[in-house]
């Protein structure tokens, strides 16, 4: 099908874009890469009265290091993150380029944007999951100025966010490096959004005990969630296989995934257990490699060290395919 009629605008700057949004009222939509929006419009699931296309807006397309952290402009495409070649970004935020490869297929990644994914707030999306895992902050801009919303407060439901209708997502800030972060996921088909995705960032202390652990899951609730109980229980423990399996059980015990047309909630709880265990192992394996000074990041493939696997190779870990 074809989209219903709409008025179309190509503002040249963020200022013009936010003015244009406000002028056109609540039924206007921002158009970034169009890889989610145009699907909905082609199906006529939504009929925006106006599109504010950001294609001419310059200066929202960047990946820049900011002290220890990283700032990503909203219009940065998935492919630009996948191909980021700054070695410091690849070391401190290697999980980003690696996860980019899990998003759709190349022709989706050449158009889709980081900010579009964050704004779309799909509970399974890799970028939303990593924003929550890594305590990112989302910068939104309107005619009234800009404000910064922590990722944990930004996602308020499936495809719902704290961004108001007249606000544009301008930037996402990752405040701290996360060299050990890992993301693994299970999907029906390579290139689809995952059914469940798990991510973890574990730091060990000098004695090899867990100093801090962050665990986040996608596809198990109406937004990406942190496994707070498991994170707390992890601190101070020796990260052996039994502990990691125990933490994965704890993490999934906290969940109550709603049934969806493809899987009932129980399936996804089981998937969560398996995937959290894999994500924890992958993260710890990274910490170990980094600790020895050798950091062959390209060789570190999350999930390959998993023992609790389902035995199914439908996992869309494209990293393994390369």
């Amino acid at each position: 099908m074809k989209p219903a009629r709409f008025a179309y605008f190509q503002p040249d700057s963020v200022d013009e874009a936010v003015a244009c949004l406000r002028e056109n009222g609540g039924e206007a939509r921002v158009l970034a890469g169009g890889q989610s929006l145009l699907v909905l419009m082609n199906r006529r699931q939504i009929r925006p009265t106006a599109l504010v296309d950001l294609k001419r807006v310059r200066g929202l397309d960047y990946l820049v290091r900011d002290g220890e952290g990283l700032r990503i402009g909203a219009l940065t495409r998935h492919i630009d993150i996948e191909n980021a070649d700054d070695p410091q970004i690849r070391t401190a935020f290697g999980v980003l380029p690696e996860s980019a490869r899990l998003i759709g297929h190349l022709p989706i990644r050449t158009r889709g944007t980081f900010g579009g994914s964050i704004a779309y707030a799909d509970p399974r999306a890799e970028w939303c999951l990593l924003a929550v895992l890594l305590d990112a902050e989302v910068v939104v801009v309107s005619e009234d100025g800009s404000r910064t919303v922590p990722a944990k407060d930004f996602f308020t439901g499936a495809h719902q966010s704290a961004a108001r209708w007249d606000e544009i997502v301008a930037e996402v800030r990752f405040p701290h490096p996360a060299p050990n972060a890992a993301l693994v996921e299970f999907g029906i088909q390579q290139g689809d959004l995952p059914v469940v995705a798990a991510s973890a960032a574990v730091d060990l202390d000098a004695r090899g005990r867990i100093a801090s652990a962050r665990i986040a899951l996608g596809g198990v609730a109406d937004r990406p969630v942190r496994a707070n109980g498991a994170e707390k229980a992890a601190v101070g423990s020796v990260p052996d296989g039994r502990l990691l399996d125990h933490l994965a059980q704890l993490a999934s015990k906290e969940l109550d995934p709603p049934a969806d047309p493809r899987t009932d909630g129980h399936d996804r709880k089981e998937l969560a257990t398996v995937l959290v265990a894999r994500a924890l192992r992958a993260s710890i394996a990274r910490g170990a490699t980094a600790g020895t000074g050798a950091t062959p990041r390209t060789g570190a493939t999350p999930g390959t060290s998993a023992t609790a696997g389902t035995g199914r190779q439908a996992d869309h870990q494209k990293a393994e395919d390369r």
Binding site: Y8, G34, L38, V39, T110
Partner: peptide, 26 residues
């Protein structure tokens, strides 16, 4: 027309893209 099949794939500035998920004005 939903980005799933890829039969509409063309190259835009040398990169593959789904021509059904791109407005001509883009």
């Amino acid at each position: 027309e939903l980005g799933a099949c890829g039969t509409c794939t063309v190259l835009v500035n040398g990169e593959p893209a789904r021509a059904c998920l791109m407005l001509a004005v883009q």
